[in-house]
Computed example of a mutant assay.
Amino acid sequence: MVGKIKQQHERTFDGKVVMVTGAAAGIGRAAALAFGRAGACVVVADTSVDGGHATAAMIVEAGGKALFVQANVARAAEVEALVDKTVAYYGRLDCAFNNAGIEEESQPLADCEEALFDRIIDVNVKGAWLCMKYQIRQMLKQEGGGAIVNTASVAGLVGAPTQAVYSASKHAVVGMTKTAAAEYGHAGIRINSVCPGVINTAMLTRALVREPSREKRLKHLHPIGRFGEVSEIANAALWLCSDQASFVTGHQLTVDGGLTAI
């Protein structure tokens, strides 16, 4: 049923420490809750204090373990501190879902302002790079390697008219994911990305408020006939981090209702 995607996660993450960025709402919150239900100790990271605390509280109320850390992924000192706090609190870092990102663009490339370009690249590209940098450094120090999933997008696989900068940022995430996977596979660190289609999130709501006529056209692009749900992306991230995906690295898992199939 649309809007009520059933989730069934065995406690496959018992004893694992998982970091989720952009976890105050949307896909990040859905993933943090799913990791918690699967038995993980979850580090909830976001710039939003209220939203982050709320997500952590939801995990605890459901019987899980969670720690909220306020962090801006575009700032190196804050990302380093985020990883340090994770290790100080839980002792290690096994998995990370680097989901924090922004989309504030809906205009032709030639009309985009430099400040907007810098803001999108700062969060989506630099943020993913900084997270991987400090997460990988920690995983190299400990036994057992680790698993990292980055949120890319179908806009990182194909062009996205009126979203040139966002598309460029997600293409960069795909490129970094492949490269990091090749560099650190020998150390037992698997690195993949998930590439969502159009998902029911606040980001989508904002886009449709700016341009309501897009809704019908966007749904038509998905052969499955609807937008995706945050739980469906969360399920994909959990699988990529799980032992079931033990031979999967450098992969871009497209979860798009068939959008890129045609």
Rank of each mutant, 00 (worst) to 15 (best):
V43D: 00
G257D: 02
E183I: 08
L109K: 02
D111A: 14
F68P: 03
G127T: 09
A30C: 05
V154N: 01
N72H: 12
V255Y: 07
A164H: 05
S48P: 08
I102L: 11
R119S: 10
D111T: 10
I136K: 02
P212Y: 03
S48N: 15
F227C: 01
A261C: 11
C241E: 02
G39Q: 08
A182R: 13
V123E: 00
A115M: 11
R119Q: 13
F35Q: 02
P212G: 10
G22V: 03
A237S: 12
D243M: 11
C195W: 00
R92K: 15
T205A: 13
E114H: 12
F117D: 01
G91I: 08
G22W: 00
I148F: 00
A45K: 07
R29K: 15
L240A: 05
F247G: 09
Q70R: 15
S242Q: 12
A96Q: 07
I224K: 10
I262N: 14
A110D: 14
T254A: 09
A155V: 02
G127I: 08
V18W: 00
D50E: 15
V43Q: 01
F68T: 06
S106R: 14
P108Y: 07
Y90C: 06
T12I: 15
E103C: 10
I102N: 03
R214N: 06
H9Q: 14
D243E: 15
Q135Y: 08
A96C: 15
Q252P: 03
A100Q: 05
D84H: 12
H53E: 14
D118P: 04
E143W: 04
R210F: 00
I102F: 01
H222F: 06
T86V: 10
I102V: 15
